[in-house]
Design a protein around this nucleic acid. Structure first.
Length: 615
RNA sequence: GUCCCAGUAGCUCAGUGGAUAGAGCAGCGGCCUUCUAAGCCGUCGGUCGGGGGUUCGAAUCCUCCCUGGGACGCCA
């Protein structure tokens, strides 16, 4: 199915080619017909700059070219009017009734695209303390990506990687065993949050104990390893509970200890051994280590760009395990995990249990913050080194900026802000951060206090939706400076606003069946109100926008589209009475509200917030 | 030192080759006896960090510089 915009582009292309041919010319290879929805209503519903682009080829003025194209395009049935505007734009105005009929016809022969399998890894929080809002941004991004790809027809599998053998778990275990603290905590993760920060404050305390604990964790089957497992699992369950409140879930939990004990690294090592870029260093700072060499650098400069995979003491780095994991993700290892069920609809890797078909992806997406670009590049490099060019190309690091704290919020958490910085980083090590559960609770109280009606949806759901929308609104590269007061603002461009508009639309449509709503009204008003036309043209743009969102992994385009739709609807709602209008107008407006509501609902679903019918 | 990201309204951010640079918040002024005012309408506010270049056209592309953040560890 191709959209109206694409069809229009094709028509323009045809018209332009015939104009070129008449002048003994052919289509210039580097040009392309671009059709866009102009920002301003008076510039039409769609517009093209093709006349300007062809001016040099045709050696005529853009205005002349636009005028001849206009004559050739006016007969296209869905177009009501074509304007030629200086310096040479072609502006198209749609015949909305014909558009509506056309779209209704198109819906019938929509075909399902054959699906590729895509593995999306997100969340992957160290299971040694409570989650904070930086982690939540990761999970919201990952979850919305999963929703987008599912919508696009992919077979999506969501992984959450559990690093149960890392330094962080080791530190919390060290604290639990040897560093008594006391205090009242609602949850284990909150207790560990403080404990982890405390032991990190003690000069030299961890360094004495960490290595022994790490080794015991890796070996397994001993007191420390079991303690580590208990800690990781307990905290993981709290993380999953946190995320569930935001509508986030997973298909598979991959445990680092399983990667190690199933011998994934040994298998990966066997493959890497034959690569000239994977070498054991005999001299220099990395003497005794297995490293992955950078291909096109000569080791110039102060820093060594190579990546250690196996330390001189034989212990693997995180990146080594990640490489093994990614070979498995693409189905390139002859090994597999066993699987056991962790919760309803959620499986975990295991050393015992049943066989299941996880992994073997066509595409892999890793949602990880931008500070880890280097190790992610190393994983990709390892795939290339092994000759898996296709898989390397299909491995995508979805990079995003971290969440830091505004000075006001940092100060509330007891951070010394006397240095006057514009933002303060969160730090688990220092115990600085806004915990997900605390934020949700606080926001719930705010909602409970300010909401005018208590119907349809709980204050907790509203709070979660507001937070989720807030974290998804920004460009991925933007480092969010989180401010408690700003996030608690539920007016204007907020998740609450979107849900409210959906509830309003739902109320107007109460008691009307889906079928009735989909029927194109027999008459359209002679002159549409500004608010009606604005809403229509935004609705018409949804299929193209959705394509673009998925192609560019452009989440703010999704939230922005939804906000604008809600905003246009709200203006329409105020400008045009629906239920009180004359019969014909009423039928048209109800149809328009129906269209708005169904697209708003789709968008809300992708953003991952509820579409309440009442609130 | 090398590389990456950012610098747009008082604040937080959109906008990556097109038409008069847009939102929200904050400020000011209006609108509830009419479908949900968590709303709507109006208004104030910008030499798009700076210089140079490419183009019919630059916030957007190239180049140099300034400022802030990050990566480069036998951490993850």
């Amino acid at each position: 199915m191709i959209s109206i915009r694409e069809q229009l582009a094709e028509e323009i292309h045809k018209a332009a080619v015939s104009l070129l041919n008449e002048n003994g010319l052919s289509w210039p290879e580097n040009k392309q017909v671009l059709v866009e929805q102009p920002a301003r209503m008076e510039h039409g519903d769609y517009a093209s700059n093709i006349a300007m682009q062809l001016a040099s080829t045709l050696r005529r003025s853009p205005m002349q070219i636009a005028t001849s194209l206009k004559e050739r395009l006016e007969s296209w049935p869905i177009i009501a009017q074509v304007d030629v505007v200086a310096p040479g734009f072609l502006n198209f105005f749609l015949d909305w009734k014909k558009w509506a009929q056309f779209v209704e016809e198109e819906k019938k022969d929509r075909k399902v695209t054959p699906s590729q399998k895509i593995v999306i890894e997100h969340t992957s929080i160290n299971p040694n303390k409570a989650a904070h809002i930086g982690h939540l941004r990761n999970s919201c991004i990952g979850d919305t990506l999963a929703r987008l790809y599912r919508r696009a027809g992919y077979q999506v599998e969501v992984h959450n990687y559990i690093d149960d053998l890392g330094n962080q778990v080791a530190d919390t275990v060290a604290g639990l065993l040897y560093y008594p603290i006391k205090g009242e905590y609602k949850r284990f993760g909150d207790f560990c949050w403080d404990l982890y920060a405390q032991v990190n404050k003690e000069e030299g305390w961890l360094e004495e104990r960490r290595e022994a604990i790490l080794q015991a964790l890796e070996e397994g089957e001993n007191n420390i390893a079991w303690t580590g497992l208990l800690v990781a699992e307990k905290i993981l369950r709290e993380h999953l509970e946190d995320m569930a409140a935001f509508g986030i879930d997973y298909d598979l939990l991959v445990w680092e200890s399983d990667i190690l004990r199933e011998g994934f690294w040994a298998a990966a090592f066997e493959k890497l051994r034959h690569s000239p870029l994977f070498v054991k260093e005999e001299t220099g700072p990395y003497a005794g280590c297995y490293v992955l060499k950078q291909p096109d650098t000569e080791g110039e400069g102060e820093q060594n760009p190579d990546k250690v995979l196996v330390r001189s003491n034989g212990i693997l780095t995180y990146t080594a395990k990640d490489i093994a994991y990614h070979l498995w993700k693409f189905g390139l290892l002859d090994k597999d995990f066993r699987y056991t069920q962790f919760a309803a609809n959620l499986w975990r890797s295991d050393q015992h249990g049943e066989e299941r078909s996880f992994g073997a992806a066509d595409q892999v997406l890793n949602v990880i913050d931008h500070r880890q670009e280097y190790p992610q590049r190393m994983v990709k490099l390892a795939l290339q080194t092994l000759g898996y060019e296709k898989e390397a190309a299909n491995l995508h690091h979805v990079s995003y900026g971290v969440v830091s704290l505004s000075p006001e919020t940092a100060e509330k958490l007891g951070v010394d802000t006397s240095d006057g910085r514009s933002a303060y980083p969160m730090s688990g090590r220092q115990g600085i951060g806004v915990k997900v559960s605390d934020l949700l609770e606080q926001m719930e109280e705010t909602v409970e206090r300010v909401r005018p009606r208590k119907e349809g949806i709980s204050s907790r759901e509203i709070a979660a939706a507001a937070i989720r929308y807030y974290l998804l609104r920004f460009n991925l590269t933007t480092e969010i400076v989180f401010d408690l007061d700003r996030a608690a603002d539920l007016h204007g461009n907020s998740g609450v606003y979107l849900m409210y508009q959906h509830a309003r639309a739902s109320k107007l449509l109460e008691g009307i069946s889906e079928e009735e709503l989909n029927k194109v009204p027999s008459t359209f008003p002679e002159d549409l109100l500004e608010a009606e036309r604005a809403l229509l043209r935004h609705i018409a743009n949804w299929p193209d926008t959705l394509d673009q969102i998925i192609k560019e992994i452009n989440i703010p385009l999704l939230t922005g589209y939804a906000y604008q739709l809600a905003s246009l609807f709200s203006s329409f709602y105020n400008a045009a009475p629906v239920l009180k209008a004359d019969e014909e107008v009423k039928a048209f407006r109800l149809w328009l509200v129906g269209k708005t509501k169904s697209i708003l609902k789709e968008a809300l679903e992708l953003i991952g917030i509820p579409a309440p019918t009442e609130m």
